[in-house]
Amino acid sequence: MNDDRLWERLLASLNHWGNAAEVAPGRIELSYEDEDGLVRQVEIVMTADEWSDFAGTIWGDFGDAANDVKRMVTEAPLGLHYCVYGTYELVPSATPELPVDPEDAAMEEMARQHPEGFGRWVVTDEAGHVLDELGPEPG
């Protein structure tokens, strides 16, 4: 199935439980009533190609993929008005940009502080004795 048809089906699916409109390429404004009766507005930032990849690669089934989008949107914390496509997920965000993953940021900072590398790979025998190792010399 082509990306355009899948994208149209996504919009139709979102309109079954809310009001969705594509406001720009890769941008869907969605308003829906949450379980407490409050009207929430969210902007989904995801391209048709990303949706096609998500629906086909991860789920292989349109209905399951659409249900997962609904779950991710409705579970987004209040006050975060964007759901931005990351690798096979919609990430809640305060802006239309994918937020920085704190774990990735911590690893990048460690790499910046230790350009020589950090951590060691070791191979042990069943008794736990180191047989081989790779990485910077312990300091």
Rank of each mutant, 00 (worst) to 15 (best):
H81L: 07
E22P: 02
N15E: 08
E116L: 12
N67S: 07
H81V: 04
D4R: 14
V45F: 03
P138W: 01
M110K: 15
V100Y: 05
T57H: 12
D132I: 00
E103K: 10
E50M: 06
L38D: 15
F62C: 04
W7T: 06
A65T: 00
P138F: 00
T95P: 05
E22M: 12
E35G: 03
L80F: 06
M1D: 09
A111G: 11
H81W: 01
G117F: 09
R5W: 06
W51D: 09
A111L: 12
Y88S: 05
L78C: 00
V130H: 04
C83R: 10
E116Y: 04
L78K: 07
Q41Y: 03
V23H: 09
T74A: 07
A55H: 00
P77E: 10
L134H: 11
G60Y: 02
G79K: 07
V100I: 14
G119W: 01
P138H: 00
F118H: 12
T47D: 03
E108S: 07
E89Q: 14
D125G: 06
E8Q: 15
G119M: 00
A20M: 10
G117N: 07
A76W: 06
R9G: 09
D64S: 12
L38A: 15
D49A: 15
Y82D: 01
F62E: 14
R5C: 04
R5P: 00
E133V: 00
T124S: 11
D4G: 03
A127D: 12
R120L: 02
G128Y: 02
D104M: 10
D104E: 14
M46H: 02
V39E: 15
S13I: 03
L80C: 01
E137R: 03
M72T: 02
M1Q: 07
E50D: 10
G63I: 03
D125K: 12
N19A: 15
P92F: 01
M46K: 01
R112E: 11
A48D: 13
V123C: 10
V100E: 15
D64V: 02
C83S: 12
A12H: 14
D64W: 06
A76Q: 11
L11Q: 06
F118P: 05
L30K: 10
N67M: 11
S52A: 15
